[in-house]
């Protein structure tokens, strides 16, 4: 899959309300290019509900249903059932939610939809904060990151949503990052062909939320994968495969970059470097990532 083979058609119209350098629109463009116009989207409260722009106009060239924060997966189940009853099973139902609507508020509806075996794709674009409401902490916010509700740095580690989803043993689950468009496109195309519940999580580095300059969105995603703060994998029928750089990290074919390379560019971690370096917290972050990868190796590395 080369970039030139990705379709030209855009379902995400220009002149929308997204911030400059927004990773969500980058992801939406790719996802809608893969799914095409025969798609119904269900969007709960998240940045994307704002990106749609103001009534009576919208920036989406596909049907979109806006729904309450906790109900994305439940709403998608309803849309899927209605389309099935009408015999229109060629239409893909996609729930597109942020990390707040997936990790915290939408978790029970999501778990229910997976358990019922609803035939839909659930895509979580993870920017590690509630960015729509003004940068509050979420279950996805990493340790020591500043948000407006964790001044001085978050005291807890983020949860591993991917592993919560894997516990449902659904036909397809994947994690990817907007910095690797071919990977995102290939995973969405694969999910489209599989029947049953599918889950894709896309890491979306948010310039205003993470406090970095708006031209570095792609670079931040790439560095997150390089230093192991984010893993790209797919799990099809309980067979786990790591993709791209994460595969090399898992097999120890390339050394992992120190996490400092990633966090030193982000204002949300600036309290670890100014006024003096907080060696203790930097070590805790580094050790946590090391432990995560040791667990991945123990669980998923074929011997």
């Amino acid at each position: 899959m080369a970039i030139k083979d990705i379709p030209v058609e855009e379902c995400m119209l220009q002149g929308n309300a997204a911030c400059p350098g927004c990773p969500a629109t980058m992801g939406l463009r790719l996802v809608l290019k893969a799914l095409g116009k025969k798609t119904v989207m269900v969007i709960p409260a998240c940045c994307t509900a704002v990106i749609e722009s103001l009534y009576p106009h919208t920036s989406f060239d596909v049907p979109v249903m806006n729904i309450a924060f906790e109900a994305a997966a439940a709403g998608a189940s309803g849309v899927e059932a209605a389309l099935r009853k009408q015999g229109r099973e060629d239409i893909t139902v996609v729930a597109w939610a942020g990390d707040g609507g997936t990790y915290d508020i939408g978790l029970q509806a999501l778990s229910g939809a997976f358990e019922r075996g609803t035939n839909f794709i659930y895509i979580c674009y993870n920017n590690q904060i509630y960015s729509n409401t003004g940068i509050q902490r979420s279950g996805a916010t990493p340790y020591a990151a500043w948000t407006t509700t964790t001044v001085g740095g978050k005291a807890e580690f983020r949860k591993e949503m991917g592993e919560i989803v894997l516990a449902h043993h659904i036909p397809y689950a994947a994690q990817t990052c907007i910095s690797y468009p071919e990977d995102v496109y290939a995973k969405v195309m694969k999910a489209k062909t599989i029947k049953g519940p599918k889950y894709i999580e896309i890491l979306a580095p948010c310039p205003p939320g993470w406090r970095f300059s708006m031209d570095s969105t792609v670079e931040m995603g790439r560095l997150a994968v390089d230093c192991g703060a984010w893993a790209m994998w797919e799990c099809e029928n309980d067979v786990m495969t790591f993709s791209g750089k994460s595969k090399l990290l898992l097999e120890k074919k390339v050394p992992r970059k120190p996490v400092e390379d990633w966090i030193k560019h982000q204002g949300r971690f600036s309290h670890l470097f100014k006024p003096q370096r907080d060696e203790e917290k930097l070590k805790v972050i580094e050790n946590h990532i090391d432990r995560t990868w040791e667990r991945y190796r123990a669980l998923y590395l074929q011997k």
């Binding site: 749609e52 009576p56 106009h57």
Partner: peptide, 14 residues
């Protein structure tokens, strides 16, 4: 009900 219709430049000339 309130239905929005697709339009290029829904937020004006960005």
């Amino acid at each position: 009900t309130s239905i929005s219709y697709p339009k290029k430049g829904a937020m004006g000339k960005t």
